[in-house]
């Protein structure tokens, strides 16, 4: 067993989670597959959303997977980086909007 928390080769074994809980595993992968099909959003758009979320949830497996997926779809590096910024902007915005709570509390406690 690798002496690190993350091993890039583990991504290939993702499907194995089904072995320990077949019903839930299968339901998850069916759902996952369905989500990324062409729909009201194109598979290409969904790939970029997945890449942005992968960064926000800081999942190295997802980042590897959706960078590769983007390359396969012909998505450019500029598009990929803009998607990462979109995720980062929401994440930092989510932090900063709490600043209003801080301001409210500050004002309430101050004379």
């Amino acid at each position: 067993m690798a002496n690190t928390y993350y091993d890039a080769a583990d991504l290939r074994k993702f499907a194995k989670i089904t072995e320990w809980s077949e019903e839930l595993g299968n339901k998850f992968f069916d759902y996952y597959g369905k989500v990324f099909e062409e729909g009201a959003l194109s598979a290409r758009e969904k790939s970029l959303i997945a890449l942005a979320v992968a960064h926000v949830v800081k999942c190295p497996y997802c980042i590897d997977a959706y960078t590769k997926d983007g390359l396969q779809r012909g998505i450019t590096k500029e598009e990929m980086m803009e998607a990462v910024h979109a995720g980062a902007a929401i994440e930092s915005g989510a932090t900063l909007v709490h600043g209003v709570q801080m301001m409210n509390k500050y004002n309430k406690l101050s004379m």
Partner: peptide, 10 residues
């Protein structure tokens, strides 16, 4: 080092 995506979409 990656495979081509969907030919129609490309």
């Amino acid at each position: 080092a990656y495979l081509p995506g969907d030919q129609v979409a490309l």
